[in-house]
Design a protein around this nucleic acid. Sequence first.
RNA 1: GUGGGCGUAGCUCAGCUGGUAGAGCACUCGGUUGUGGUCCGAGAUGUCGCGGGUUCGAGCCCCGUCGCUCACCCCA
Length: 420
Amino acid sequence: MKFQSPKGVSEYFPPRSHAFEFVRDQLLAPIKNAGYQLLELPIFEDTELFTRGVGESTDVVSKEMYTFEDRGGRSITLRPEGTVGALRSVIEHGLDRAGLPVKVFYCGSFFRAERPQAGRYRQFYSVGIEAIGSDDPALDAEVIALAYEGFYGIGLRKFRLEVTSLGDAQSRKAHRVDLVAYINSLNLDEATKARAQINPLRLFDDKRPDVAAMMAKAPRLLDYLSTESADHFAKVQEYLSAMGIAFTINPLMVRGLDYYTGTTFEFVHEDLGAQSGIGGGGRYDGLMESIGGQNISGIGFGLGIDRALLAAEAEGVVSSTDFAPTLYLIPLGQSAKAVAMKLAHELRDRDISVEVAMGDKALKNAMKSADKSGALFSLVLGESELESGNVELKEMSTGVATSVTLSALVPTLITRTLKK
RNA sequence: GUGGGCGUAGCUCAGCUGGUAGAGCACUCGGUUGUGGUCCGAGAUGUCGCGGGUUCGAGCCCCGUCGCUCACCCCA
């Protein structure tokens, strides 16, 4: 029996795992600089949290959840997205009672039982933030900017930002009446009518040319915004422009999660396949209250680490290289090995990365391993070195060795590494 | 859930009109005393995805199945 990973999961192993780590850390960096604080959350929750929060009519809830019964007979679901779990935690622990807005971030894996394809996995990784308890349009702009800065920090350039506003409840209600009337006037097949029943906005996202042509003339939500909503959206745009962040308004944008209201946005990359969305999010006015919290609004996003990595690779801005130590230590003989272990232990304590040759290889082969490790320096520790206390520190790129006393090894490595 | 493409060594792949499996890279060891990269030599590695069928004989043909992959749908 040869085991393999479950269908459709993404997993990262060296050397690519290092590029993954880089992408994740770059996405996280601006978030931390803006005062968002870590929320480390469970990856499974009470199923009802998602059905209530995300919405039963969404594809995510109706057909993509990993749901099972635990030993106590409770219905449990692997989290398909991060927002409702984050809000549940905020509410449960009263984080929203100690000053608003609450600003939190999280990072980890999410699960959707879909048919896998390029950039779409059953277990995928996201970085997310939530800013809860302020209606200030500047907060919308900040959230969008943090996603933008994260992608930019990775080195991505071939992406665009699309924004729109879904307005407040009154705006959507007025629009929906006209939109449904318009859709009913169209000659559509049954499956499409069924989709429109669930959420008429979905039809704006239909890729079939004939449907898209019909929907191009449909009433647009942006034209139905209340003065308050329109004003809010105008300010968001103003702040984005002030930050020099380019965006396009996409009045046809549709998001698959029911809770979005007001400002919504998506980041789309040019070089990806069908799954080109590398991140997205928006404001959610009623969500806190719908899962048992106070009636306050919030805004957040989810950024796809897997897809951002794919995009970075497509743009050629990340390289997947193996770990390379500063020093590769080669002990010769049993007494030298104990000294080498001690030395490595001390060096690592001083934050110098060290690998020790294992397995008593011939010196020649140990040097080959040192070369392969990509180490900056190598050092042979044998009888003569132990006696004299002098070692030859060899710079691998030039082949030049310099004599150093063992006691001077740490300062020498530190200064010579800094010069690189 | 629906459709297309593909499954041969760790990786990339070759394998003719069916005759019981190969290359390159990588790996391990060696090329006379304790120093890598180039070069030379030697070595290890496959249930040809799995199961069935046709055939004297199947990596190759047929059926099924599983997996991977891309797209629809949906989204990170």
